Simulated assay, not measured.
Amino acid sequence: MEYSREALIEAVSGQMPDKRWKHTLGVMESAVKLAQRYGADPQRAETAAILHDVAKYWPVERMREIIEQNGLSAELLKYDKQLWHAEVGAYTAEHDYGIQDTEVLDAIRYHTSGRENMSLLERIVCLADYIEPGRDFPGVEEIRRLSKVSLEEGLIAGLDSTIGLLLEKRRIVFPLTVLARNDLVRTLEDKI
């Protein structure tokens, strides 16, 4: 059974600190605005945004268990634990909250990493996570500005920011993030 919007909000908000719920509200607002601007379904964007961080504050061992026991991306376990909540969140959205819309599930699954050939909805939720009003990091205003001009330009700037930070800290970059960025650059080049 799929939950109503109100039931989803109640269930998800109770699983995270107030600060993270405030972030989620910002992602919901940003996702709806981006969907309206770029021609996606605002309701689907909002649903994905509500659930995008549902597993963010779950214990790492619980997330590992869900990934291992349900045939989810075992490759993910080789990378930063901060990525795990997206895969587990998509699984949870489907199995605990009845979400059957594969585009919504993929928007949740790839909101932290991106991937090649991202759907419009995936791009919107990923970008909304970068630009929501509560975000405050170097370069966020430029990402916000670009997001009003081009979904792809905004998302490339966001991914560049993430990749740059990881490189600066000498951290491993998740391959899907690099592939997502390169694919978006190619998309823009093809438009020229």
Rank of each mutant, 00 (worst) to 15 (best):
P175S: 14
R62I: 14
P42L: 11
A93Y: 03
A86C: 08
G89D: 01
I9F: 11
Q15K: 15
V173H: 02
G139A: 08
I172M: 13
E141P: 05
L120P: 02
Y91S: 04
S30A: 15
E94H: 14
V178E: 02
E94S: 13
Y79T: 07
H111I: 10
D18E: 15
T177A: 05
R115H: 08
R181C: 03
D129F: 13
L155D: 04
L151F: 09
I66F: 10
I156L: 07
V104Y: 06
G26M: 08
E168K: 15
K78P: 06
E29N: 06
G114L: 02
Y57M: 11
K191C: 07
A90H: 00
Q82H: 13
H23C: 04
L34G: 07
T112G: 08
P59E: 14
R62Y: 09
A90W: 00
A55M: 09
R123E: 05
E142S: 13
R123S: 10
G114A: 01
P42V: 06
Y110L: 14
V104R: 00
W21F: 13
K56H: 12
K22G: 02
L176R: 06
I108C: 06
A93R: 01
Q82E: 15
N182W: 05
R170Q: 15
G154A: 09
K22Y: 06
G98D: 05
G14P: 08
L127Q: 03
I131V: 15
F174G: 02
F174K: 09
L34S: 07
K78V: 10
A157T: 11
N117C: 08
V125M: 01
S147H: 03
G158T: 08
G14W: 03
L105H: 10
R20Q: 14
R186D: 14
H85R: 09
R186S: 13
L176G: 04
D18N: 12
I66H: 03
G154S: 02
A86R: 03
L166E: 02
V149G: 03
Q15S: 14
R135A: 15
G71C: 01
P175H: 13
V125T: 05
K22V: 13
K81T: 11
D183Y: 08
E141G: 08
L159F: 10
L146I: 09
W84E: 06
L72M: 04
W58V: 09
V125A: 01
P59S: 11
N182I: 06
M63R: 00
V149Q: 02
I124R: 00
E2H: 10
L34E: 00
K78R: 12
W84H: 10
R145M: 12
L120R: 12
P133Q: 05
L176H: 04
K19M: 12
R123N: 12
E94D: 08
K19D: 13
K78W: 08
A157G: 04
M1P: 07
L184K: 03
R145N: 12
A55Y: 10
D136K: 13
Q43Y: 11
K191Q: 14
E103K: 00
A35I: 07
L83W: 09
L51T: 00
